[in-house]
Computed example of a mutant assay.
Amino acid sequence: MNDNSTDLSAFGIGVDLRDGYAEVGDGVRLHYVEAGTGPLVVLLHGFPEFWYGWRRQIAPLVEAGYRVVAPDLRGYNLSSKPDDYTEYTADKPAHDIQQLIRVLGAEKAPVVGHDWGGSIAWTLAMNHPEVVDRLVILNAAHPRKLNEGLKNPHQLERSWYFFYFQLKGTPEHHAERHNWEFFVHFLRDAQPPYTDDELDRYREAWSQPGAAKGMIDYYRAAVRLGSKQKVLTIATPTLVIWGQQDRFLGADLAEPHAEDVPNLVRVERIDGASHWVHHDEADRVNRLIIEFLGADQPRADA
């Protein structure tokens, strides 16, 4: 697992980091960063981030006594990048994470997901509930709510890039030609703003061979094949954290239907926070996650 361990101190996370690689089947190899000891917690980043998107959460979770693992999702940074967009339907990266949890030696773990990582976390909890101890979702609509939202003209306007990303080759080539400023545009709402050093780390990740295409192929798969996703009831205790000033997703998408997530503990709406709620309100988000993971909530199998 940790066959390519390197010194990650330059990332400035505040705790000792270890990186490793996990073979998760179907020729896919996930890169991940790990810190701490204790019960496992898995953090799933969104677009256009990579594991580094959790830089404000890793140390607080380690200090709270957890072993934190933040993978690069398939298609991102140092993980495998299947070439066909059909390899990016939500069930396939969800299967990657199920296998990753097993490879890491755990039977189950809390899973925290933001944006696309949240979409994958929803799917993981539907398809592989046996490995998800608790579920924390940050600004990622439940699949049924997202499909409903994309029929709304106001949400369609917010989600314009879903359709731009359907153009073959154009979005990734445009982004690369202009020093990835198109991807930076998606991050501009975060407060405090990403520093030049942080953006350089993102540009390095986006510049990995095949990464830009892999990242965008999630959108191609969602638009072309997403309606085929089967929606199953999620019995896992679930916390949703939602930045109310999300430029991409309307606040009406925050709360899943009760029948889809009957063990929803609550939706914590954070006024003034953008789509990048884990950066905007890092201390509050960290506190909410740690309290939820440690709380005596009823279990899905209780």
Results as ranks from 00 to 15, higher is better:
237 P>I: 14
107 E>D: 12
173 H>V: 15
249 L>C: 05
259 E>M: 04
189 D>Q: 07
257 H>P: 10
126 M>P: 02
259 E>Q: 04
229 Q>N: 14
142 H>W: 11
231 V>S: 01
167 L>A: 04
129 P>F: 04
296 D>I: 14
252 D>S: 13
118 G>P: 09
229 Q>R: 14
289 I>S: 08
21 Y>P: 01
9 S>C: 08
149 G>K: 01
258 A>R: 09
275 H>A: 08
43 L>N: 12
3 D>V: 04
275 H>D: 01
277 V>A: 14
12 G>Y: 07
163 F>Y: 11
103 V>C: 03
293 L>N: 06
258 A>Q: 02
49 E>G: 12
216 I>F: 01
246 D>Q: 15
14 G>P: 03
137 I>P: 01
138 L>D: 08
154 H>L: 04
262 P>E: 05
89 T>I: 12
60 P>S: 06
46 G>Q: 03
101 I>A: 00
41 V>N: 13
214 G>I: 00
154 H>T: 07
261 V>A: 12
171 P>H: 03
292 F>D: 11
101 I>F: 01
70 A>S: 01
114 H>L: 11
276 W>Y: 08
237 P>S: 12
9 S>R: 10
192 P>F: 01
126 M>C: 10
188 R>I: 13
103 V>D: 00
169 G>Y: 05
64 A>H: 12
9 S>H: 10
160 W>L: 08
158 R>W: 03
286 N>A: 14
107 E>V: 11
166 Q>D: 13
153 P>H: 05
163 F>C: 04
167 L>I: 08
170 T>Q: 09
150 L>M: 06
